[in-house]
């Protein structure tokens, strides 16, 4: 076999390999993509169409093109006078929801990371049990769980009674029906979504190495930020996405614990499909929300790429 022949054979093998790889990839991706395309993306296309139509009487849509839904998001026509004026109501609803979701993500991270770390340092055969313990509370119903939380954080609730008995406070803290309650509720509902991905990325960490690190540097914070956090980064990113995005659309918990006096994006949109009878506007608001989420994800991906290229 001449050099040239060998080279061609090699090239062919590589090409074959690449083709195989592409095939394998396609085959591996097929189930997930098919399911999501059929059951989530196709409806998404329907949503896009809806957002450019006119609301039907009593819900639904009429097949008449209109961009009103998008205009309506920022401006208001014909409420109380006919001119187009900037309308801050929807924007402020969006901003509040984003703030709450960000806060919940941060809170879940601060509580979830140590919890994941704790589980990952347990003996191997115990770890699944711990994971199970973290998710078990969520096998009960959301509503009932929220009612139970209500009882705990009320003025005469468990927390206040304990704090007062311990002499830490003299009069009860008002938590229920405030933004604090909403935060607590959101962090509570999304904690497992933070803990489990971080655990999954930390689990293989060799903790004897970490111990060695302690001995060498003797500075635990340094070890944490230079060894453990970089290792757990994929899990942290995954966890933040799983908390932040659903947190944006959440409204049952925030409503019950926050008292329901303020709208969240989630129920503002849901309302459009209910009593407000404006499906196109609901669709448009949902798409705007999605665009926002995609922007966040893109920014995140870009930052990650920059960080990666800087490091290597």
């Amino acid at each position: 076999m001449s050099d040239r022949e060998a080279q061609t054979a090699l090239a062919a093998a590589i090409a074959q390999n690449r083709r195989n790889e592409r095939l394998t990839r396609a085959w591996l991706l097929a189930p997930a993509l098919t399911l999501i395309l059929a059951i989530s993306i196709l409806p998404l296309a329907i949503t896009v169409v809806y957002s450019f139509l006119t609301p039907g009487t009593y819900g639904g849509v009429t097949w008449e093109f209109s961009t009103d839904s998008y205009v309506q998001f920022l401006f208001q026509r014909d409420i109380f006078d006919d001119s187009l004026v900037f309308n801050s109501a929807y924007v402020s609803i969006f901003l509040r929801s984003i703030g709450l979701a960000l806060g919940a993500t941060l809170g879940a991270l601060i509580l979830g990371f140590p919890t994941a770390y704790f589980i990952a340092t347990k003996p191997r055969e115990q770890r699944n049990i711990w994971l199970f313990l973290i998710t078990l509370p969520f096998w009960t119903n959301l509503l009932i769980r929220t009612y139970a939380m209500l009882l705990i954080i009320r003025d005469e609730g468990l927390i206040n009674i304990m704090l007062m008995k311990a002499g830490i406070i003299s009069s009860p803290l008002t938590i229920l029906y405030t933004d604090t309650a909403v935060f607590i509720g959101l962090i509570y509902s999304f904690l497992p979504f933070m803990v489990l991905p971080i655990y999954a990325s930390l689990e293989k960490l060799d903790f004897s190495l970490v111990e060695a690190g302690y001995d060498l540097y003797a500075n635990r914070l340094k070890v944490l930020f230079h060894v453990i956090v970089p290792l757990a980064k994929p899990g942290i990113v995954a966890g933040c996405i799983l908390v932040f995005i659903p947190g944006l659309g959440a409204y049952i918990t925030p409503e019950l614990l926050g008292g329901g006096k303020k709208l969240m994006i989630g129920n503002m949109i849901a309302m459009q499909f209910g009593a407000s009878r404006n499906w196109p506007f609901g669709s448009a608001a949902a798409l705007i929300l999605m665009a926002l989420v995609i922007l966040v994800l893109l920014a995140n991906a870009l930052a990650a790429r920059k960080g990666a290229s800087r490091n290597g």
Binding site: T57, D78, I79, S92, L263, M271, A275, S276, R277, N278
Partner: peptide, 20 residues
């Protein structure tokens, strides 16, 4: 009785203003 769409739109705006 069920209200016409223009009225529902106005109600919707009042509601959003009230709960923003």
């Amino acid at each position: 009785t069920p209200c016409p769409q223009e009225v529902v739109d106005l109600y919707n705006k009042i509601w959003t203003q009230l709960k923003q």
